[in-house]
Design a protein around this nucleic acid. Structure first.
Length: 453
RNA sequence: GAGGUUGUAGCUCAGUUGGUUAGAGCGUCAGAUUGUGGCUCUGAAGGCCGGGGGUUCGACUCCCCUCAAUCUCCCCA
């Protein structure tokens, strides 16, 4: 075994994988652009202060912190020792660490908006495709470095944004050829449930628990609710709530009965109804799922989650509306709504369903055989002219037997080979062979430039 | 952060109740085959058996630690 290795939870991507991932990125990017979103990139690192306290207690622990430079300078040593003691007590300390790797794309975006809201045209629509880092324990489909693809609109309360984002999901996955179900719910309905249960302050406890319904079943959810301090009567209401079934329309009617006493609940139902009845949504596979909760606590309105049908896989995308993400950076009253695509999981789904197009694997189109010094000179000149015409070419790196050169083309999936040997050199011709069909023809060298590969 | 499983050739995996030079298939390289590849045949290279320590005359095998992958929980994408 070689001693060199990768840090835990990180990966190298070889050519094939990069091409497939780029295929995913390019489709997502083009759809974002199609809907009028502008690109944004932010630095890999942020001030630790920017990130701390935004992801909950668990999240804070998973932030990768960067050690300050120059801690070993003699004049600083004593201070460093004293301040390091505080780190050991679990307190962050700018003397030791003042920067951290970004944990998601949303908070850096909020930081950007807070810094630039004066010159941004509102509503501001941005998309961002960059890696993020989490000091999580790696598992299958779960890494310490992974990409997120986010699109957010800030500065608008209009539900038109939710409708557009829903259409973005549908458009992207249609292009991928992945069948999906877009599940929606509203945090307002969940809040109403909490109200009706007489435990408005228990909203987070309730959402965290019912979010697991799919995974662990109602009995376990009930246990968790009990542990989180809900009484029998409250749990009975939640049980009724979780048992709601039927078409979107039927579910909405039932939910209305249950939470009609709540003003915020009414609002939530209105919003969901508005979304579902929009002409562009009616043809899509959008399902109202009132058990959908999603972990992130900053959501306040409609929330989304994407499930691939036909494939066993967790959610491959999600998002929702938040009222005041920039508030913590001193700029209140900028509402927003955003969605995210889980690239790694989408990759796994597409791999399983074999949805990657075949033509993304070829890079080189033409291989020129190398059959000697003079011959390869002629080939090289011709090759450069083809390259000028934007056709990707290679020439075999040394004179070798046909066998070897063929195998090289085979392995690299190069579809065409061009042979210029002594015979062709003399006749100013070249032989073109399509390696896939086996067809072969000899033409004049000057005609190669207009040959349609 | 808690618990379980696994780690042998580039890849997938055998293996000996602890006993000399650790095997197979696939892949790689060379030849059969110096102007026509994929098939076939022949041969070769490639391993401190994840790393460190211990027990033993002797450890790939048993014990401890560690690292990594993977699964469940937690949390999430």
């Amino acid at each position: 075994m070689s001693k060199v290795s990768l840090p835990q939870g990180t990966r190298d991507f070889s050519a094939d994988v990069v091409r497939k991932r780029n295929y995913i990125f390019s489709i997502i990017r083009s759809v974002f652009e199609l809907y009028g979103f502008q690109p944004l990139e932010t630095p890999a690192m942020e001030n630790l202060e920017t990130l701390m306290g935004k992801y909950g207690e668990e999240g804070d622990k998973l932030i990768f912190k960067i050690l300050n430079n120059g801690l070993d300078r003699p004049e600083k040593k004593e201070k460093t020792k004293i301040e390091f003691e505080k780190i050991l007590e679990g307190k962050n300390n700018p003397v030791i660490t003042e920067r951290a790797l970004r944990y998601d794309l949303t908070i850096p975006f909020a930081r950007y908006v807070a810094m630039n809201h004066h010159q941004l045209v509102m509503p501001f629509k941005r998309y961002q495709i960059q890696p993020v880092w989490r000091a999580d324990r790696p598992q299958r489909g779960r890494y310490r470095e992974f990409y997120q693809c986010d699109a957010d609109v800030v500065g608008s309360k209009s539900l038109l944004n939710e409708i557009e984002l829903t259409n973005i999901y549908a458009t992207v996955f249609k292009q991928f050829g992945v069948n999906i179900e877009i599940r929606i719910n509203s945090r307002k309905i969940l809040a109403a449930l909490a109200e009706v249960c007489g435990g408005a302050d228990k909203l987070i406890d309730i959402t965290v628990a019912i979010d697991k319904l799919d995974k662990i079943g109602f009995e376990k959810v009930k246990e968790e609710l009990q542990q989180r301090g809900l009484n029998e009567k409250q749990i009975t209401i939640i049980e009724k709530y979780l048992n709601i079934e039927g078409s979107n329309q039927e579910k909405i009617e039932q939910i209305a009965l249950l939470i009609s006493s709540s003003e915020i609940g009414k609002q939530g139902i209105e919003e969901i109804t508005f979304l579902l009845n929009h002409s562009s949504i009616k043809t899509l596979s959008v399902v109202a799922d009132f058990t959908l909760a999603r972990g992130l606590n900053y959501y306040t309105g409609i929330i989304f989650e994407i499930k691939a049908t036909n494939v066993q896989m967790g959610s491959i995308g999600g998002g929702g509306r938040y009222d005041d993400l920039t508030g913590t950076f001193g700029v209140p009253n900028i509402p927003g709504v955003g969605i995210s695509f889980g690239v790694d999981r989408i990759y796994d789904v597409m791999e399983e369903l074999q949805l990657f197009p075949k033509d993304i694997y070829t890079s080189t189109k033409v291989l020129f055989f190398n059959l000697g010094e003079k011959e390869s000179k002629a080939s090289f000149e011709l090759m450069q002219q083809l390259r000028d015409k934007n056709i990707s070419c290679e020439i075999y790196h040394e004179q070798a037997k046909f066998d070897k050169q063929f195998k090289y083309a085979d392995k690299k999936a190069i579809p065409y080979i061009v042979i210029i040997g002594s015979k062709e050199l003399e006749e100013k011709t070249c032989t073109i062979k399509n390696i896939v069909t086996g067809e072969q023809q000899t033409i004049l060298q000057k005609d190669l430039l207009t040959f349609s590969f």
